[in-house]
């Protein structure tokens, strides 16, 4: 394959460095990192409410898809699952993140012309709801872990078909 020839390669002036300074190379500002970590601890009490609203959002997206199964409602369900995957680990729900990741993979990687296996979608949504409801924050919880592994296996099978 022919390599794309650059027409122009240039270094714009580093206005950002000029603006924020920081000496020759200030590196990571450890005091700022400590302040931010303390601030994160401070908002952790809000995480439970955030996670609850994300679970509701996912269930609402699922209900919307059941009523109107079009690409917009499918995308909304994917976004809800994807958001939850991204945030659940921060919220200390690693298995919710794992099951949401599995659901994202199913919706995101199944070709759009193929119908979603709704039984499998529902199994994911219900699993997320139950893991969150029972406050399973332990990644090694046997039941939730077995459920996650089973769902991931079924998604792999569904994507092969």
């Amino acid at each position: 394959m022919a390599r794309e020839q650059p027409i122009e390669l240039f270094m714009p002036p580093n206005m950002l460095k000029a603006k924020v300074g920081g000496g020759t190379f200030a590196g990571l500002d450890m005091s700022a990192i400590r302040r931010a970590e303390a601030a994160m601890e401070g908002i952790k009490s809000e995480f439970a409410a955030w996670a609850a609203s994300d679970v509701e959002k996912l269930m609402a997206a699922r209900a919307r898809f059941a009523k109107t199964p079009d690409s917009a409602s499918r995308d909304a369900m994917l976004r809800a699952a994807h958001d939850m995957k991204g945030q659940a680990a921060t919220f200390n729900y690693p298995l919710v993140a794992r099951v949401s990741g599995s659901l994202s993979k199913l919706i995101g990687e199944l070709p759009p012309e193929k119908p979603l296996p709704m039984g499998l979608v529902d199994a994911h949504v219900n699993a997320i709801h139950v893991i969150y409801r029972d406050k399973v924050m332990d990644e090694s919880n046997k039941l939730a872990l077995a459920l996650s592994v089973e769902l991931e296996g079924q998604v792999a099978e569904a994507l092969k078909r």
Partner: peptide
């Protein structure tokens, strides 16, 4: 982004 900005490229 402050310390190690990448050069910019303009191709077609």
């Amino acid at each position: 982004v402050i310390e190690s900005p990448r050069p910019y490229v303009r191709t077609e």
